[in-house]
Nucleic acid binder design. Structure first.
Lengths: 346, 346
DNA sequence: CTTGGCACTCGAGACCAGGGAGTGCCAGAC
DNA sequence: GTCTGGCACTCCCTGGTCTCGAGTGCCAAG
């Protein structure tokens, strides 16, 4: 079928353009790939592909370049994620295994990803839904001011100030101690989700004079805990790879650099990835940010429980539309899996 | 004196070159600045300045450009840090006053600095030497594992795991409680420096069966505290301003981006600033990194106690050698002062 | 449907000339 | 001694023209 060959031509164009960074013509195409036909035939095919909007020429009498739609078809139908070599897998495992704590895992992941893909890497901090409340502490700082410290099983520590209303009675040491015990009883050992629910109940159940303080403290604690159902911190790495953009520098570099500083924007970029194993590819203007229309995003959810439960965070890379999709996708997927595995262990 | 005029010429050259980004010639110089002499005279002066290595010409028959040495003289002798306008000062104060905690102060500072100077801003986390230990908590997690939590008056919270040697006896709740009390007695309320000393003593003074545990815990705690004598975290902002470098892109951008990711390198860049008020300017190759030879660093120490006590952290900007030194220096100094003031209050 | 041939288009690079900005130097004026 | 005007010189930048080559589109033949 010609249809089949046309797609082969598209694949060849994408591969060549990604490799050489130059518009690719019919003649060089038949030379490099062993399509069994002549340049003239390729030209006809290319005319059709252009008709379909999959490729374009920068100007008359130049080679062809894939359009966003062309890359889309390439990613969806023409490429298979190329598996990593055993050596690469070993290197990834070794690199990530050296991590000592959560911060280190994230740090190493972002470096690894940047190095493997030669793109800008983004890793969102994971939220461990299996995480439980390890300890809660309540300390008086000043007569009307308490400090609440929350420690999760993941090692995350969060502290909040609790300012009392001027109207409220200043609690004495015993009251504080009792409230501390209340909070601990309700939450320690529970998962973050369960702890949130327990706190909601707590206020109504505690009687007597310390009700006001409990309500106040429980509210603050619930806040702190619920913040940990989704962690919005992200880490960026490999910015130096931006220099490889080379062309289209001014047009796309500035908004990109700006976006990389706006972590909220990055979270949007990583976007809604589905279950853990899921690989998302956003090409060009498909993404949520029109300023970044000449870049693509390859992202994956990750998290413990690689069995397909909802992902707890996302990681990925952002790079020029003209990128090595199979290789990049393989790297992102591999890192996501290894990080998931590591989180599973600990 | 001609000497005097020559320096005026140098000043004019620096100002014009910074403004126009183009080599400046004798004729345009007399036009723009009202030096009372003819272009020919300027040419003679320029010849001398070139002899002295303060200016250079990119090629014969082009205007002159300041050399690093020229900028040095300009900064040291020819420019006065121009004071910020009242409006600017108000804006700075308003922007920084909105900060809710230390993280926020740092975050805002870096943004502010980037915005004011249009350069890449770097802010090191401050170490509050006036900071005291507010609370210490010791909790059993598992039979042979304890969690140590340290809370400083600055709001920083640090937690450490204490793993006991297999050989040691597993402490019961009472012992843990006693040790906790020991630690608290030694450190709570003390400055970080005093607390460190107290802990060193503690181990030798506590008798009896809990000596082993105290020694162990005190060691960990001392570690945690001493980490807070110098905070090596830095925050970078305004990377998007790099796009304004324009020229010399490839040569200097990549190493710069790489350096910006290596926080250790950045600390070296901010370098040894003296007392709080001190403004340091490193021009071109004067800096510690030869890769960044075409950039300058303007930094200042800051910290509470603007009275001249040693600075506790540094902040600054890095930008192209060709920058508006007076303006940049004013901005860096102003931000350093305001941040210092804010830290003083809290 | 494929192929070879052919004319056409258009960008990239080489080459050249003119204009202009800037310099260095020198002789004369203050 | 210092400044100034004049002058010749150097080089970069710009724009125009030309050629070359890669690549296309189309057409007629296999």
């Amino acid at each position: 079928m010609q249809e089949e060959r046309r797609l082969a031509v598209l694949r060849a164009i994408v591969q060549d353009y990604v490799a050489t960074k130059e518009p690719v013509g019919s003649k060089t195409l038949v030379e490099r790939h062993s399509l069994g036909v002549s340049p003239a035939t390729i030209r006809n095919d290319m005319a059709v592909l252009e008709e379909e909007g999959l490729i374009a020429q920068p100007h008359t009498s130049a080679g062809r370049v894939p359009t966003d739609a062309g890359y889309r078809v390439f990613v969806d139908r023409l490429s298979q994620v190329k598996p990593m070599s055993a050596a690469e897998r070993r290197a990834i495992a070794a690199f990530l295994d050296g991590a000592v704590d959560l911060d280190d895992v994230v740090q190493r992941s972002v470096r690894l990803l940047a190095q493997l893909t030669h793109q800008v890497a983004i890793v969102q901090y994971p939220v461990l839904s299996g995480s439980t409340v390890r300890h809660v502490e309540l300390v008086s700082l000043a007569p009307a001011r308490l400090l609440l410290v929350l420690i999760l099983s993941t090692g995350r520590v969060e502290q909040r100030l609790v300012d009392l209303d001027p109207g409220d009675a200043v609690p004495d040491a015993e009251t504080v101690s009792a409230v501390r015990a209340d909070l601990q009883r309700a939450t320690v050992g529970a998962s973050v989700v369960a702890a949130g629910d327990a706190l909601a109940d707590l206020a109504s159940r505690v009687p007597g004079e310390r009700a006001a303080l409990v309500t106040r403290a429980a509210g603050v604690l619930a806040d702190a805990i619920s913040d940990h159902r989704s962690d919005e911190r992200v880490v960026v790495g490999g910015t130096a790879n931006l220099t490889r953009f080379g062309d289209a520098f001014d047009t796309s570099l500035k908004p990109l650099l700006e976006a990389l500083e706006e972590h909220v924007v990055l979270l949007k970029l990583l976007g809604e990835t589905g279950s853990s194993g899921d690989l998302t590819v956003r090409i060009g203007a498909e993404g949520p940010l029109q300023e970044l229309s000449s870049t693509s995003v390859v992202a994956s959810g990750y998290g413990p429980g690689a069995d397909g439960s909802a992902a707890l965070a996302a990681l990925g890379i952002v790079g020029p539309t003209r990128m090595d999709y199979p290789g990049t996708m393989a790297a992102v997927r591999a890192v996501a899996r290894y990080v998931s595995a590591i989180l599973d262990e600990s």
